[in-house]
Design a protein around this nucleic acid. Structure first.
Lengths: 193, 193
DNA sequence: GTTTATTATATGCATATGCACGTATATGCA
DNA sequence: TGCATATACGTGCATATGCATATAATAAAC
């Protein structure tokens, strides 16, 4: 449901085609919302069905036609209503933490490899997050509102804070493993002895 | 997909009925995986279809019959394989952050109310997390493995760290709002003037 | 006395998402 | 020549999830 309003939020800045929206998503909110292109197209379809957006076909020679979507007054009203409403709290579902929860069933070597990979992954994510300001730069100029920029940066800040926390947490497990601070597997393995 | 392995992970400790699994989920992994009862039943069905779990109907007088699910050797193999495999990285989708991202379109009063509510929500979550150790206590005794307990507690620790970070972050926005550190809305409103 | 909660299992339906694939044109690279 | 990539729009299918609802018995609360 939030994708609908994310798209609406972007359309409230300026008209977009689905293809351009995908770029906008990838360069601005990738740290908290990864949007599939097909999902964006489906959402745009729903928005125009509801009358929350209007479509204009822009013909291009040498390139496929573009469909420019523009937010309607009804769309703006719906967006405002949603933004003023309660937080869309979703139940958490973390696959990685499921693995961590049951990691005690694996030997140290496997756990070590897993957390080393996780730490690398977190470091990579952090680096990508650090590039977000440059990536949104053109949009910051286009929208040209310090207030918007403040909240955009706030979402990035939270992403970096939590990613940093996850990295530190994984590194702590790695240290515990090195120092023998993780209780050992009771039955060393099964089979040979 | 991870739910399947979460259920399998619990079955690897001891046989469970769907109803009891729901209680296990709610008292141990609620901070990173909230499971719907119907979803648990469906997953158990799939597990026994695959031969990863066997079913035993336990008849009870005065209560509905229970279906006790037991992990099979194939199930144990599948679990081990998954646990040793890569992290199941899922694309992030945060509805709340979508709202924050577009909050600049709302006046200060609305934003203030939203972040105050968010901070309250985060505080409530933190309190619930703090009760998890007591809630898992019986299971800690049953499973009786310091190694398992270590990783169980690690997931809780990460949950508390990130929740704490979110709370601090929301309180910072609230302070910015109070101190006028958030850039103002350009067109005060629309309509009257 | 009636409603609600607890124990216990399940189906049905709407919606969201991911991934594969299909269509079409033009450019650049090997 | 062939293949990948960028532009641009989608459909189809499998799966996951949430919520409502059905069934059925007992016990407690109002």
């Amino acid at each position: 449901m939030s994708l609908e309003y994310a798209v609406l939020g972007f359309l409230n800045y300026q008209p977009f085609s689905g293809y351009d929206l995908k770029k906008m998503f990838d360069s601005s909110v990738q740290h908290f919302w990864v949007a599939d292109l097909s999902q964006i197209y489906r959402t745009l379809g729903k928005l125009s069905e509801k009358g929350w957006a209007s479509v204009e076909v822009v013909e291009q020679s040498e390139r496929p036609d573009r469909k420019l979507y523009r937010i309607t007054p009804q769309g703006q009203a719906a967006l405002r209503e949603w933004l003023a409403g309660p937080f869309p709290t979703a139940a958490p579902h973390s696959g990685p933490l499921v693995q961590v929860f049951f990691s005690g069933q694996m030997p140290d070597a496997v756990v070590q490899a897993k957390f080393a990979a996780a730490a690398d992954l977190f470091r990579g994510m952090l680096e990508r997050y650090q590039q977000v300001p440059q990536q949104v730069q053109p949009y910051v100029h286009q929208v040209d509102s310090p207030r918007e920029t403040y909240f955009w940066m706030k979402t990035l800040e939270l992403g970096m804070l939590t990613m940093q926390a996850q990295l530190l947490w994984a590194e702590q497990v790695l240290r515990d493993l090195e120092q023998g601070a993780v209780p050992p597997l009771d039955p060393p393995q099964e089979g040979e002895a």
